[in-house]
């Protein structure tokens, strides 16, 4: 049976030589967490199923630094690597794949230019094209209020989910579930779904969001944003129907190392690779 994947995420600030891993809270406050290559290697040795590098600075010259980080990492890390941030053109995918990455994730560039997904998936294959969606709850009074949006019942009412771009700084009016379905149609191989409401809170993933997304897609969904305890990951895999779970700070600050999370999941009957 296919195992559920545990994916540590490294948010990288590349303004310093060799980069450094940072962690934000609700897309804002920043804490320093370590060296990207060292952390990735540690997670590999701990049994991470995949590793995501997110360039939170994402300017043109810093992409060179990311290329070096990927090259150095893949000398010793033999699990899939995904790179996000600053991926704007099909050539960017090729460049990162040449450096040793297996997948590239794009958010803002895909919303601004959806054809990028078609072009990139034709060029490097769907399996390498991850679309990241940063989704924010928008509460409404009545479930009948909307036309084409996905209205979801949550514990404190009804809401739809709006896609955000530029690292949470701008909102688009686009419904996250509809957008994900379009991405799948255009050739995306996977959706990296972050709840902006939960990110950094340690209150758990947004389960209604994750579940609705997974039910409406044929491609894998990675749950992201809000994990504080292994139980949250269990929730994402069971009620949330996620295929993979992404987490940052619980791993960086050694609150729950990867083996601890996996042992817990296995004891709860979730198939994981140990």
């Amino acid at each position: 049976m296919l195992a559920k994947r545990i994916i540590p995420c490294l948010d990288c600030d590349l303004q310093v030589p060799n980069g450094r891993v940072v962690k934000g809270v609700e897309f804002k406050q920043i804490r320093y967490a370590g060296d990207p290559v060292e952390l990735a290697t540690r997670y590999y040795e701990d049994g991470a199923d995949e590793i995501v590098f997110l360039d939170i600075t994402a300017s043109h010259e810093r992409r060179e630094t990311m290329t070096h980080v990927i090259e150095a990492t893949t000398e010793n890390v033999f699990v899939p690597i995904c790179v996000g941030g600053g991926i704007r053109k099909p050539e960017d995918y090729v460049k990162m794949l040449k450096a040793g990455a297996d997948k590239c994730s794009t958010n803002t560039a895909a919303i601004k230019n959806p054809d990028l997904i078609n072009e990139a998936s034709e060029l490097v294959g769907s399996q390498a094209c991850v679309v990241a969606i940063d989704a924010k709850r928008r509460y409404i009074d009545s479930p009948r209020e909307s036309d084409e949006r996905f209205i979801i019942e949550v514990d404190d009412g009804y809401c739809w989910y709006e896609c955000s771009i530029y690292g949470g700084r701008e909102f688009t009016g686009i419904d996250a579930i509809n957008w994900a379905m379009e991405c799948q149609e255009r050739g995306a191989g996977e959706i990296l779904l972050t709840s902006m409401d939960r990110d950094g809170t340690k209150e758990g993933y947004d389960i209604p969001l994750t579940r609705t997304m997974s039910q409406n897609l044929d491609i894998p969904v990675i749950a992201s944003g809000g994990v504080g305890r292994p139980e949250h990951i269990y929730e994402a895999f069971t009620n949330g129907m996620a295929d993979a779970a992404l987490a940052a700070s619980i791993f960086h600050f050694n609150e729950y190392p990867v083996p601890v999370v996996k042992e817990y999941l296995r004891s709860m009957g979730v198939p994981v690779r140990i």
């Binding site: 296919l2 559920k4 994947r5 199923d49 399996q127 191989g189 491609i219 295929d243």
Partner: peptide, 8 residues
């Protein structure tokens, strides 16, 4: 789900 993506 297609692709069959992950560890088996």
């Amino acid at each position: 789900k297609v692709p069959h993506m992950g560890w088996n």
